[in-house]
């Protein structure tokens, strides 16, 4: 019997297969597209507004028209421009809050996970306590202490969400620090700051990115809730939550005034959640290897 020997394949090279539809990370693309789209719209409407959103250029509660695409509010201001600017505010606040929470949470989480002992116990009990208090209460107290500006709001949201990041990063670091490559680095004499910064934190990055996107989603909702309660973004800066509060009374007569800001909150939340899901999938697939 004749056998034909197959040429041995080099298994270290990636097989050149055509990308199938199920290989495309739809969640990640859709999530980033929604956030990027709203950001672009907000930037355009901030620097080149359709109509000046601070001025009463139209009649009271006008319906959608060629000039006012989503109509006007109770004092004749353009709803579309205001909603677009509110979307940009939502994106900016959620990105800043997520970045702040991730930076603080990652450093503390990596430190407490690596050092262990009494610093870990003390930090984790504080984290437990912060997670046990209702988030809205913490933010309202912080708003009273810090003030009512946009940056104070970002600080309050970053502070609020950093304990959850600490907890997640700590658990990732606890697993990574037991890896042989960390033990071998310790044997070689690599110092603690280098182990934290070059070994533990980079290997926690996939978890951190997913957690960051999740924080972004929560921050959008909480910012809207706070603005609805009058404790978030302050007028005249447009905010979806504030618009929902102000226009509730026009629900029957001009529903577009409520639907538009509600859609902004909805789309931003969906955008962040899709991004988190997509990141999780993308980073799980590449867990065995690292793409440069």
């Amino acid at each position: 019997m004749n056998y034909t020997l197959k040429k041995p394949q080099d298994d270290t090279k990636k097989p050149q297969t055509k990308k199938r539809f199920q290989d495309v990370n739809v969640s990640l693309i859709a999530g980033i597209a929604i956030i990027a789209g709203l950001t672009l719209l907000g930037v355009v409407m901030t620097f080149w507004p359709l109509n000046n959103p601070s001025l009463s250029l139209g009649g009271r509660l006008e319906g959608p028209s060629a000039r006012f695409w989503l109509g006007t509010d109770d004092i004749g201001r353009d709803t579309f421009t205001r909603v677009a600017q509110a979307a940009l505010t939502g994106v900016a606040v959620s990105i800043a809050a997520a970045a702040g929470a991730c930076m603080v949470g990652a450093v503390i989480g990596a430190f407490t996970g690596y050092v262990s002992g009494w610093p870990d116990k003390v930090i984790m009990r504080v984290v437990d306590a912060l997670l046990a208090i209702p988030s809205i209460l913490i933010v309202l107290i912080l708003r009273l202490v810090l003030g009512t500006g946009v940056w104070q709001l970002v600080l309050a949201l970053a502070f609020l969400y950093s304990p959850s990041v600490v907890r997640v990063i700590r658990s990732t670091v606890l697993v990574t620090r037991r890896s042989d490559f960390v033990a071998l680095a310790e044997i070689a004499g690599v110092n603690t700051p280098s182990i934290l910064l070059k070994y533990l934190l980079p290997n926690s990055l996939p978890t951190l990115l997913v957690q960051g996107a999740s924080v972004g989603s929560n921050a959008v909702v909480l910012e809207a809730v706070l603005s609805y309660l009058g404790q978030g973004i302050q007028p005249p800066q447009p905010s979806a939550g504030r618009m929902l509060y102000e226009y509730t009374k026009f629900m029957q007569t001009s529903p577009m005034l409520l639907i538009a800001p509600a859609m902004v909150v909805f789309l931003l939340t969906v955008g962040w959640n899709l991004t988190a899901d997509g990141l999780q999938r993308a980073l799980l697939i590449t867990r065995s290897g690292v793409k440069k």
Partner: peptide
């Protein structure tokens, strides 16, 4: 350090993937 080093069993977890 410098006098003793080591090689462990699992080559997959012995190298920093990054």
């Amino acid at each position: 350090r410098g006098v003793v080093h080591a090689v462990f069993q699992d080559p997959y977890s012995s190298l920093n993937p990054r």
